[in-house]
Design a protein around this nucleic acid. Structure first.
Lengths: 224, 224
DNA sequence: GCGCGTTTCAAACGCCCGTTTGATCGCCGC
DNA sequence: GCGGCGATCAAACGGGCGTTTGAAACGCGC
């Protein structure tokens, strides 16, 4: 088997298992067994378990973020908030990205993995994730600011942050919601989930900014 | 030292460490060292590491959810969406809960722990978390449905789900956002964060429902 | 101040972890 | 067809893990 093929099977297995159980709770023995590869292959091809995690993220995240940028650039001069939100959400939730013959399907391993690692954020991934998202975040918050002149940059960054959390939680725990609602909310209809998310986020983005700018919020009657 | 005092110091240390590094990545040796307790104390007092995690959640979650219910019940007959959202958000983000002389401060260990475990969801916690949230979720989705007659239950459950994700991500990664924005978004002003979150979520809740009910969404012009 | 149930302690148990090693395999150029 | 090298393999390494053990220390009613 070629080296590339081995790496792909390992990456695929890692994607699934890291997503399901998390980075720390997944052992390389379990992982390589699932991949049909030798235990030592991880060290050989990726240097270490951490190197593997970064490789898993990198092969998917780069194309997705590239498509986000492309969609943002392709918008009209005065795009709607919804269009901007859609450019942010859809490449991740409906990726259609293929790498080494392993496509990203909605609800597949990688989607859940991002949901998990985006919030788990082991220390060794922090810088990597931050670097991946910094430029993209500024582009989107700028685009939103143009569409929403009443909002300052900080407010829109916060809302982008909330959106990321909503996406991550949805990717990770949609099945829990189905269970919680006795099947009322179905997580297998990706189109519907995307629409729910876009509607909610796009409308939330258009709320008025909570405080003018630097004004101290006066003390409310608080219990403590 | 009394048994209760030992348990409290262990719970406090676990709260902090589980929040920072996660359940799987925190060892009992590290944990008991921080607590100034003996390694065997965890097994003795909580049965196992998993039992400890459940105890950590339980001591905080019960009062917080109780206050959520109380706030919801205390609302006027026709509450605004914002008031309902506030009843959901504030008890968690501004808890003011004291247990065994260890108060929950905003941004303290427990807040981040919830953010983490809400999304990490180790298998042994799934049922516990689901049980904790089931009744509460229905109450809030019902209240929202009354305030938003145009929305069906599933839509409002989804939005509640998004809100949980936004809260969790904020609790867990607010510091990352500060770093990402070069200090523009400050996570130390809890009041401001709560306002941002409430405005965003309350407004998002009032979006029109994405699809009438059972109608199939017509195929849009999609790239693939 | 003795006895006894509770709590703490140091030590050890067995297990599984991530990584390394050195031999072996398979393929391609020559 | 053979040398060389990248890839694979079984095995072992040292270490850290969660848990258990049995003895020591403690607290308190009598």
């Amino acid at each position: 088997m070629s080296a590339a093929a081995t790496q792909t099977t390992i990456l695929d297995a890692a994607e699934t298992l890291f997503a399901e159980a998390g980075f720390a709770a997944t052992s390389l023995r379990e992982l390589t067994a699932k991949a049909g590869a030798n235990l030592a292959a991880v060290s050989y091809h990726f240097g270490s378990k951490e190197g593997l995690a970064i490789a898993v993220l990198k092969r998917r995240m780069d194309p997705i973020n590239a498509e986000r940028r492309a969609r943002l650039d392709a918008l009209h001069k005065q795009p709607t908030v919804e269009a901007i939100v859609r450019a942010f959400v859809e490449p991740l939730l409906r990726p259609g990205v293929v790498h080494d013959a392993t496509p990203v399907r909605p609800g597949s391993g990688f989607c859940r993995l991002v949901g998990r690692l985006m919030v788990e954020q082991p220390p060794f991934l922090r810088d990597f994730l931050t670097a991946q998202f910094r430029d993209l975040g500024w582009r989107f918050s700028d685009a939103l600011r143009q569409a929403l002149p009443g909002c300052d940059a900080a407010t829109l960054w916060w809302r982008l942050h909330f959106l990321v959390g909503a996406i991550a939680h949805t990717l990770q725990n949609a099945a829990t919601l189905r269970h919680l609602t006795d099947g009322l909310c179905r997580d297998d209809d990706v189109d519907a989930v995307v629409e729910h998310l876009v509607q909610f986020a796009a409308h939330g983005m258009q709320a008025k900014a909570p405080k003018p700018k630097t004004a101290r919020r006066p003390k409310e009657s608080s219990g403590r």
